[in-house]
């Protein structure tokens, strides 16, 4: 064989060294701060209840008392320990938003892949449905669903999925359509690979980046919607411990104990900021216009 050319193509210097396994977007200052904060709040929300000094539902003193030795952050509008309720009240936000986000991506990616790859009527039908959902203000859609289906937390979670999946579906559809015109996908079609195989092997791995780019934003949106519905009293109901619910319940006693409102509001705010920082860092290291 013509060895001349073969040797002239130089062997590239080894494989990439396994430098740091930490992704680049977590190595920027805002990414690192955001990720640490996020992790801290999630740990607080999931495991905090193990350290609660009191039951979250039993009154321990006069409603609206300021912080004291018994109650680190005082008592709430019904005389329960704010700190204990705070330790219990994050799981609903983080957990439900997490479940909703998983649902959003399961449906959004499936719909987007099918619509983007299909050359038939399936595409316009799916995408018109998506357009239709997007023609409502999101919160209004949630309120309409609650009116029809009654106040229950599962209605809110399903509603959040319905409201958020169209955004994912649109992105996935556009990416799928673009990738399916690439040479390697056409080669796969020409050699007769089956459609599910093409979607799974050739297309899906190559649209992971645009899909992942918005996970943070969607999760943050799920947090906001679920917390807001709880705040309005249309999701979780008393006596559940939930940060959103706490903010509205304790409004009555802010003049005597500001912590009943400030602490859960601050945690929700920090959670949202943490996610936003990580998402922003991700977008910037991917060279989008965030720079």
């Amino acid at each position: 064989m013509e060895a001349g050319v073969a040797t002239a193509l130089p062997e590239k210097a080894g494989r990439r060294p396994l430098v740091s396994r930490v992704p680049r977007f977590l190595r920027t200052p805002s990414g690192a701060v955001g990720a640490t904060l996020f992790l801290a709040i999630v740990l607080f929300a999931v495991f905090g209840r193990l350290f609660a000094p009191h039951s979250p539902e039993a009154p321990i003193g006069i409603p609206g008392s300021p912080p004291g030795p018994e109650a680190l952050l005082g008592t709430d509008a019904l005389g329960r320990d704010v700190f204990s309720r705070l330790l219990y009240g994050g799981l609903s936000v983080v957990g439900l938003a997490g479940i909703a986000t998983v649902g959003v991506y399961a449906i959004g990616v499936t719909v987007g892949l099918v619509a983007g790859y299909s050359r038939s009527l399936v595409d316009p039908i799916l995408m018109r449905t998506v357009d239709f959902i997007l023609s409502f203000p999101a919160l209004l859609l949630l309120l309409i669903l609650v009116t029809g289906l009654g106040t229950a937390i599962w209605v809110t979670v399903v509603g959040v999925v319905i409201v958020l999946f169209p955004g994912v579906a649109r992105i996935v559809r556009a990416a799928t359509e673009e990738v399916s015109q690439r040479g390697y996908v056409e080669s796969a079609v020409a050699r007769g690979e089956k459609t599910p195989g093409i979607l799974a092997r050739e297309i899906l791995p190559n649209i992971v980046t645009p899909i992942m780019a918005d996970v943070g934003i969607r999760f943050a949106a799920a947090v906001i919607f679920i917390a807001s519905m709880n705040y309005l009293g249309l999701g979780l109901r008393p006596p559940s411990s939930d940060w959103g619910l706490m903010v509205s319940e304790n409004r009555r006693v802010i003049t005597t104990n500001i912590w009943g409102v400030l602490a859960p509001a601050a945690l929700l705010g920090l959670l949202a900021i943490a996610v936003a920082l990580v998402a922003d860092s991700y977008a910037r290291t991917r060279g989008r216009s965030g720079r």
Binding site: G183, S187, A190, R191, G192, E202, P205
Partner: peptide, 28 residues
């Protein structure tokens, strides 16, 4: 349609695409 061709027919004709940048699956 390529799908309707037999695997033997598909095997016998092969195509090389224009753009080397997207001829190969980047994740494989």
């Amino acid at each position: 349609d390529a799908k309707k061709r037999s695997s033997g027919q598909r095997r016998r004709i092969q195509m090389i695409m224009q753009n080397p940048a997207d001829a190969l699956n980047p994740r494989r």
